[in-house]
Design a protein around this nucleic acid. Structure first.
Lengths: 354, 354
DNA sequence: CTGAAAGCGCTTACAG
DNA sequence: CTGAAAGCGCTTACAG
């Protein structure tokens, strides 16, 4: 092969081989209009013969585009909960991005690190847009991505929208999910329905679920009793403690909505510690549909977020924003969640294995 | 700020501001030796004032390096099992890479896709090295990354080494893990110890665990009985079926090592279906230490792979190979696994919650 | 539709 | 230790 002795074939090599100018090679590689079929064929053949592959770095420099999406993951020690969704999210996002010619570069941000502008996690022009995945993190903190800068990147947040100018966001409908969970309980005849919130009410992810809870109560004509609402902090232990507290009040609940599966594990434990049978003595609904939910005893009824839809939607939105130019305005998309009925509430379960 | 009216500050702007040549700026940015303290300060100040950030794309083009690691993930529908490790692996790898100035670009490869050279998943010079994560996939297939090409990238495989020339690989010590699991059973007095392999024996990940099983038997003077060895195929259902088969033979086992937690879930179900108590009537050990293992009834004794150590080791090895130049030769590192004793074998558990 | 030019922002050899 | 040059591989305007 008469390619260069060193390194891969370059656009010039292809041009020489095909007997055309290298501009023409660029044209066909980039699928420009108005290239004659003849030219295309000649070039394509030379490309094949030389095993030419475009040099993306050079291309990016000239283009002022990187065809890269930057995914920033906020992980935290207290919050392993987010992890189970992460892989699934990543898979979906990479697939969509790849199909549209974008690569994915990921950056981890530990919560304890100081929060800077997310864009600063990447070099200048290293990515064309940002996906910010931090669904279970304190939103107040999370909003520290100063917009207002001149050359802000398009960004989409997974979770609730930040305060930025170009706020794009995609999330599951937590309110509706909580509503469905609690309605399920009410429909089964429960009147004393407690709730263990997954976090204190400075977290929007906690607030929306509480709202769904209250709306469901209202829809079913059940008065809200604040003694029935307690608050945990993500961990299983806090679920156990919160449940114990709920069980200790006068007129304890006959059913409890715990807005986190992880915490529901603790809650089930607390119930069992008192000799309460699930669901006969106490009905329980969780939230998240972790893998473990199917394997608890009894299998846990819970709410599942539409991770695949979220990842696809977010990726498409971001790419659209990148292609569409600077200001798309803000947009927030909320996707419906699904109640997975198993056996922890006493309803006959549609899906059941364990 | 006298920066350019358009775009970010460039190296020239910094030079102008600091009153030096832009070569000097490059020098300090790249931490070259022999820059006077005075120069460094002037430049650094100008950088700060202008908010200059190096343009990585341009730098990469000039450098012929991208400072990027390419992570290819082989996912498969039948193999959700790999997922739980993925997030943890990704976190570890990104952290190490980031600390050494490397970004991470990820590419998903679905198993059903044709297997090409892994390097072809990336553009030319888009990444400096490859991490290949596909621990639970048929190894025969996985080896289809033709080495032998001229400009092969350094690559490290998570799992057993491929056949390539530059074969770097890191893995957990499955043999030792299986050995520990089965020895645990033997130590508790079991003589009839069965095994359900996680996959048929064309998968090395299955073979090594079987080897550990046999070695442990031998070490404890227990003869190998092939009727006690059965083979599943990753799924929970196959674990259930395999266990049922084992329970049906004459002289059934009093303890079983199931080399996959997912399958152990099915196995526990099969045991319970026959009214067998765990661990009184039948002891069970799993493999993987999925999150669910802590929450089964009873909590599952199992083997945990050193994911963090693997991710860190693999990333460091790869970066070393990148920095060290072409041929490092092949190297395979096997890291020790850990037996997590819970309650499914009747041993007093050190760690116990659920 | 196709050439020769200039440039993306930076870096590595090259003389001073 | 510091300048002016050439180049990384490609692309966008520019004339033909």
């Amino acid at each position: 092969m008469p390619a260069r002795s060193q390194g891969r074939a370059t656009i010039r090599d292809v041009a020489a081989r095909a007997g055309v100018s290298f501009k023409s090679v660029s044209n066909v590689v980039n699928n420009h209009p108005f290239v004659s079929e003849d030219m295309r064929q000649k070039v394509q053949q030379a490309i094949a013969e030389l095993g030419y592959r475009p040099h993306s770095v050079a291309r990016n420099l000239a283009n002022r585009r990187s065809n890269m999406l930057g995914l920033v993951l906020r992980a935290s020690s207290t919050d392993a909960q987010a992890d189970p969704f992460l892989t699934q999210f990543l898979l979906g996002a990479c697939a969509v991005a790849g199909a549209q010619g974008f690569g994915m570069m990921v950056r981890i941000l530990l919560t304890d690190e100081p929060i800077l502008r997310y864009a600063d996690l990447f070099d200048h022009q290293q990515v064309d847009g940002l996906m910010i995945f931090s669904p279970r993190i304190d939103d107040a903190e999370g909003d520290g991505d100063g917009d207002g800068q001149d050359h802000d990147l398009p960004a989409v947040r997974i979770g609730r929208a930040g305060t930025g100018t170009n706020a794009l966001a995609v999330d599951g409908d937590d309110e509706q999910g909580a509503f469905a969970a609690v309605s399920h309980l009410a429909t089964l005849g429960h009147k004393r329905i407690g709730m263990v919130a997954n976090a204190n009410l400075s977290y929007t992810v906690s607030v929306t679920r509480v709202q769904g809870y209250r709306q469901a109560l209202q829809a079913h004509g059940i008065p809200f009793d604040e003694r029935l609402l307690t608050v945990g902090q993500f961990t299983r232990q806090s679920g156990q403690d919160s449940m114990a507290r709920l069980l200790d009040i006068d007129e304890p609940p006959s059913a409890v909505f715990i807005s986190s599966d992880r915490m529901a594990l603790g809650a089930m434990r607390a119930a069992r510690d008192r000799g309460l049978r699930i669901p006969e003595d106490i009905a329980i609904v969780g939230y998240d549909d972790l893998f473990v939910a199917e394997h608890t005893n009894p299998p846990l009824t819970t709410v599942r977020a539409p991770i695949d839809a979220i990842s696809q939607c977010a990726t498409n939105m971001l790419i659209e924003a990148i292609r569409g130019g600077k200001r798309i305005g803000s947009r927030q998309i909320i996707l419906p969640t699904e109640l997975i009925v198993r056996q922890s509430c006493g309803a006959k379960a549609a899906t059941s294995y364990a």
